[in-house]
Computed example of a mutant assay.
Amino acid sequence: MAPGDNLPDFLTNTTLDPTFDADILDTHLIYDYDAQDSDGNPEKWRYELWCFSSNRVIYAIHGGPMAGRINYQRATYQCIRPGELWQINWLEETGTLVSAVYDIKERKMTTMIAFSEGHWKGAKEALGDKRKKEDLERWRGLAEVGRQTSRFVLSEQAHIVETFKGKGALVPIGEGDPLF
């Protein structure tokens, strides 16, 4: 089978940099985006990301329109500069694409999130935990709303407020947990 025959699929010809274990493996990041509520008042959107393995991330969202979402994804990692910059990319079952750059030295996350129309307009339906079958099925349905070009693209920078090794309050995933 050729790459891409069984979609969704991931391909990277970039070898995982040997600094992965020290720089990012098992790293848990808690970060805040400076945002505004619907009335224009300042608020924080808190995200939590655990770089679980060389091909998985686990995350929870605690603030903003997606607060209450708990998920894990198959991901790719690319080292931009060892000990300094890493890019993490994934595709969600809602059709949303995420690309995040973790800046170790500056303690920042720079992200580009291309929400599918269903995910953005159906933010309440996108809440829950992927481990619950009814949540996962509902999320998959959000990918069917709109067209590939009907996306809400959010480009933001967040300040990392805490970095540590290990799961924290997030739940690890097992081999039997569905990926998509």
Rank of each mutant, 00 (worst) to 15 (best):
R147A: 10
A169D: 15
P178W: 04
P42A: 03
E134V: 08
I30F: 06
P3Y: 15
G128D: 07
A158V: 00
Y33C: 02
A67K: 09
D26I: 00
M109E: 05
L97Y: 12
T19Y: 06
A75V: 00
S99P: 03
I70G: 06
D37K: 07
K133C: 05
R140P: 00
K133F: 10
L179S: 07
E144Q: 13
D39Y: 06
S116I: 00
T111N: 10
Y59G: 14
E144T: 12
D26W: 02
R147P: 06
P18M: 03
D26R: 01
N89Y: 09
E48G: 01
E43S: 07
D37C: 05
V171W: 03
N71P: 02
V153I: 15
G141V: 04
L7K: 15
E93Q: 11
I70E: 15
A100F: 13
D129Q: 06
G95V: 02
S53T: 04
R69F: 03
E156H: 10
S155E: 13
R151L: 15
G95I: 01
G146H: 01
D135R: 00
K124T: 13
M112E: 12
T110P: 03
P172W: 12
M1S: 14
A22N: 13
N41R: 09
G95E: 04
V153D: 13
T94G: 10
L170P: 01
A75D: 02
D135A: 03
R81Y: 13
W45I: 04
Y31F: 15
P18E: 02
A169C: 07
R107W: 10
